[in-house]
Each structure stands twice: as C-alpha cells, then as structure tokens.
C-alpha cells in the first residue's frame, strides 16, 4: 500500500505574547499509509491537535501559522496549495471530527441541513439526492429513525448522537483520510466504545485511513496499528502499537504506560503518575524537553537535545538511552 500522507519537518508556531513565539508542533515528521490507522498520543499541549489542524489547513491565524515543513497528501504538498484548492480537499478527500460534539454542530441549523451541506459543497447533486444520501449516511452511522432525525436540531440530540452526526458529515464525500481529534474524550465510557467501534468499522469497510488523536493509551491499543507519542511539540517515539506497549523505548512512553490504571492494582495504592508538569513551551529546557521529569536522565540530557533516531525495525525514538542500548 502506498503512502497517503507524509508530514515532513512541520513547524507550526503560535504567538503567545507580543514577543514570544512557541513551536506548538516542533519539527514533526511522520507518514500514514493508505487504509492505515495511526494514533497520535500525548498530553494536552503536546502538539497533537495542532499537527492535525495543520494537515487540514485550519490552524487559527492569528495567533498561529505554519512556519515551515511539507505536508504531502497523495503526492501533493498541501502547504503549497491555494486556499481554493485546499478547500476542495477539506471535507472532500480529508474529513475531520472534533473533540466536542456538544459545540461542534451549528445550533441554528437542522442536522439534515448540515449534512446535506457537507455533501453539496463537494458534489454536484440536487437537494433531494443530497437528502437521500444524508439519510443513507445517518443509517451507516447507526442513527435510528434517520428520516425524523434529519429535521432535528443538535440540541435535541445526545453527545454520542451528535458525534455520530459529525462522523456522518466527515464521511459525506467518501474521504481517503479521516482525522479524528479526540472524538471520544467528551463522551462517557459506553458511548466511547460504540464510537470507537464505528470508526474502526469505517476504517475497515471503506478502507479509509484514520489519523486518530487521543490522550488515552487504552484507546490506542484498541484502534490503531501504529502510534506516535508526542511531548512538548515533538515526536518522542513512533512504532507499531504492539512494540510500543510491550517494549517502550522512551522514558515518557514508559511513564504513560505505567500510569494506566490496572485491575490488578491493589486497593488504596496510589496510581502511578509522571512527576512534574509539562514544560512551558516558551521556556523549553536547552536539552531534552523531558529532562525535568525523566527518571533516567543523564548529565548529557541537560545540555544536548536528542535527535529522533530510527531503530532497527523502523521504530523511532528521541532518547540518548536508545543509542547506547543501556535501556
């Protein structure tokens, strides 16, 4: 299978103050194959959403802008496209769903109007054809009684239902790539499982590639083949999900895995946490960004920034420990 999306050395900056610029995405590179599901994992502020928005060309400007890099989608550099061409790709060959289903739908239009709009923006079809297709899509995302649902407003639906509508709109033009930015974070656990199953089904049945952004490693194991771990704007580790879980290379990944609560954890025992907090992006340490929280730091880590290094088997990690093999 060919490469669908290739991000090279992407730097997306945000202005936080008159004189202060931060690199919200800091030299991010990765590829995504056709039909593959790739997860980006990280804490809030790690740059995962910014990376996704950069691909969509939706970085809010001001305060943000893409400083450098290339984003190839089916061989075309999206960053070189004019706004018109980019608009033809958005919602057409790349669909996106967001974290907040409660606020992501326009409150003053019916669900039907919003779905048919997504269809008609990219396809020359009549209103009634668009309507039929919208009903068909609602069926595919397993919304009961789709005819009636077309006429309802977002506020009349539950969070899970709204997220299904969002997915339905993202699928309106049969995209090759679906970007899901924490689509289950705002939902309760049972609904979360249903939405995950739905996205997995879409990836499988339509052969749609999915870029799945989450802070939940448990979800990653469920849905993705490969995963990227991001920290403070940079990729710190990338690899197959099984390798990542069984043999994490970066101390940060290891910390994240340890922080997942397990059923076997005895009652009353405090859950594991990574000490410290995410560094302020405007005052990153000189060396490794993780140095202040790393349990395995060495003197070298304070002075020198480790490079992202490709290991045998195609895994990548940004840690000096991986070089010496002294993990």
């Amino acid at each position: 299978m060919g490469v669908l999306l290739e991000v090279n050395d992407l730097v997306t900056q945000f202005r936080v103050d008159k004189r202060v610029m931060i690199n919200a995405a800091n030299h991010v590179s990765f590829t995504l194959d056709e039909g593959e599901t790739l997860a980006i994992v990280g804490e809030s502020g790690s740059g995962k959403s910014v990376t996704a928005l950069s691909v969509m060309g939706l970085v809010p400007n001001p305060p943000g802008h893409i400083e450098q890099g290339e984003i190839f989608f089916r061989g075309v550099n999206l960053l070189k496209l004019g706004s018109r061409k980019m608009r033809e790709i958005r919602g057409n060959s790349i669909g996106m769903i967001f974290q907040e289903p409660m606020t992501s739908l326009n409150p003053v239009f019916t669900v039907g109007a919003q779905i048919t709009e997504a269809i008609r923006v990219h396809n020359k079809v009549s209103k009634s054809e668009a309507r039929d297709r919208a009903i068909e899509l609602l069926k595919q995302v397993e919304i009961p009684d789709p005819q009636r649902r077309m006429k309802t407003y977002p506020h009349q639906m539950s969070g899970g239902m709204r997220q299904r509508v969002m997915i339905c709109m993202a699928l309106a033009s049969n995209p090759n790539l679906l970007i899901a930015d924490e689509p289950t974070t705002a939902l309760d656990v049972t609904i979360q499982a249903q939405i995950l199953e739905l996205i997995r089904g879409i990836a499988r049945d339509r052969d749609t590639a999915v870029l799945f952004i989450t802070h939940d490693l448990g979800v990653v194991a469920d849905i993705a083949q490969r995963a990227i771990v991001m920290y403070a704007g940079s990729v710190v580790e990338m690899g197959h999900v099984r390798d990542l879980f069984s043999d994490p290379l970066h101390p940060y990944t290891r910390g994240l895995l340890q922080a997942i609560p397990k059923l076997a954890t005895p009652r009353g025992k405090p859950l594991y946490t990574i000490p410290g907090i995410v560094p302020d992006l405007s005052r990153l340490p000189e060396g490794c960004a993780f140095v202040t929280r790393c349990p395995m730091r060495q003197p070298r880590c304070r002075k020198e920034r480790p490079k992202l290094r490709t290991m045998p088997g195609g895994r990548q990690t940004r840690c000096f420990l991986a070089e010496g093999g002294a993990v």
Binding site: L58, G95, V121
Partner: peptide, 8 residues
C-alpha cells in the same frame, strides 16, 4: 471550525 473542515 466544523464548517471550515467541511470545506464550506
């Protein structure tokens, strides 16, 4: 943002 993501 959703509307823009749809390509409107």
């Amino acid at each position: 943002r959703t509307a823009r993501a749809k390509g409107v």
